[in-house]
Amino acid sequence: MDQPGITNYIPILIIFALAVVFATAMIAMSRFMGRNRPTREKLAPYECGVEPVGTARERQSVKFYLVAILFLLFDVEVVFLLPWAVVFRKVLTSPEYQHLKFVFYGGMMVFLFLLVVGLIYEWRKGILDWNR
């Protein structure tokens, strides 16, 4: 592993392994240490003590889908913002990139303008109103 710092990612694997072991142990513990006397009523879906009506597997509002897809699109935009934000200040100060100063600023402003246009469009179409 020649590049400095790349080995620093290894602790992620360690903590992941530890977390998996911990979670499995907890689930197993509750499975085997607790008492276990199931009855028909106990295993029924909880509906405030009343006999369950119908099933929970029903279609849900399309609004949740819209939230998810808007989230996906804006999330991609935020991901584009991150590397720009990291380099921006260094670009402004280092002489090597002086001539690109306004490319870095203007380029992102155009991108942000598109993002804001999208947001305004959603707003005007009433997508952001939950009680539509």
């Binding site: 979670a23 008492r35 276990n36």
Partner: peptide, 23 residues
């Protein structure tokens, strides 16, 4: 108390996903 409480898997639940979710 958490450890010794009864561990309930509802009849209608998708068992494996129900177990995986807390993890």
């Amino acid at each position: 108390k958490f450890i010794f409480k009864e561990d309930i898997i509802p009849r209608e639940a998708s068992k494996w996903l129900y177990l995986i979710a807390p993890a």
